[in-house]
Amino acid sequence: MRRTSWLWPVLAPLRFDESGIGPKLMHESFINYRNHRYGVFAVALCLGAVVTSLIDSRREPQNGGTWLGYTLGSIAALLICYLALYGVRRRSFKSPAGSAAGWLSAHVYLGVAVLCIATLHCGFQFGWNVHTSAFVLMLLVSISGCWGVYVYARYPGLMIRQRGNSSRETLLEQLSTLDRRARLLVSALDERLQSYVEEAIRRTHLGGGVWAQLRGRDRSTILIPDALRGPPFARIVSNEGQHVLIQRLAQEHAGAHEASFAAKLQDLLEVASEKAVLVGKLQKDIQLQGLLQFWLYCHLPLCFGLLAALVIHVLAVFLYR
């Protein structure tokens, strides 16, 4: 049987059991991890802190400088260090210190508990100083973390549903199949339409920079030739939802004189509409995937800011007491 190292419990104080890898275990999210074990622990911690503060507040007013203030402050500081260790665990793949899901579960619940303990620690005394800045940063880290929890819990399922249970690779393959079909259909039609369809395919746009990904708008364009003045006067316009292409094909369809020509255009119209839906799905998928990662880019810098502010706060308290 696998044994765990005796060294690690020091760094993983909340590990009560084996690493959480049992063959009998079914999927268990970080939120439900071991029947909300860390949630229960966090609630108990907060209740304990609240009750002690209530009792103590009869003796002396709440302040960071009382014995209880120091105790709560120390607990909060230690918790913050422990929470930051999650980043270390995430990157140490050979670590015997429990599963990353367990760590994340503890990280989430204790992260919320820190809010309560630190608020009790400061005794609701806020001002324009370095101490309050540490508190605000902690608040922001917590909020961004909660946003992350929401994102992790909700988006993966949402992404599967909106992709209709197929993978992104499958959708991309479907897209190229549609493009091939469109090219095949239009090859029997006149050259103007061919270049129109070709332009629409060439200028179909997925993803892009960070902002484009997060906004999730279809930024596809199309080149509209100027029949009178020639190529230099062609315009590039938005082809969001393939609407320009569809509109143009519909116009041609309305003006068609031959049944076979109209039938081809009808097929082409259907392909273009299918493609519009598919591009929409892919765009949404890219957006959700982007959002799934974006919050971390807020959480991490704030977290480092918090650690710095915490060090300054502690030094300031002890040096200028």
Binding site: R2, R3, S5, H27, A100
Partner: peptide, 28 residues
């Protein structure tokens, strides 16, 4: 050679990855 078991499972932050035995497929 790792005490913590398969790294793919223990590194999964959300608990999405598990390893099961064929006997557990019905339960799964």
């Amino acid at each position: 050679d790792l005490n913590a078991g398969p790294a793919c499972v223990s590194a999964c932050p959300t608990g999405a990855a598990i390893r099961i035995h064929a006997e557990d497929v019905v339960a799964l």
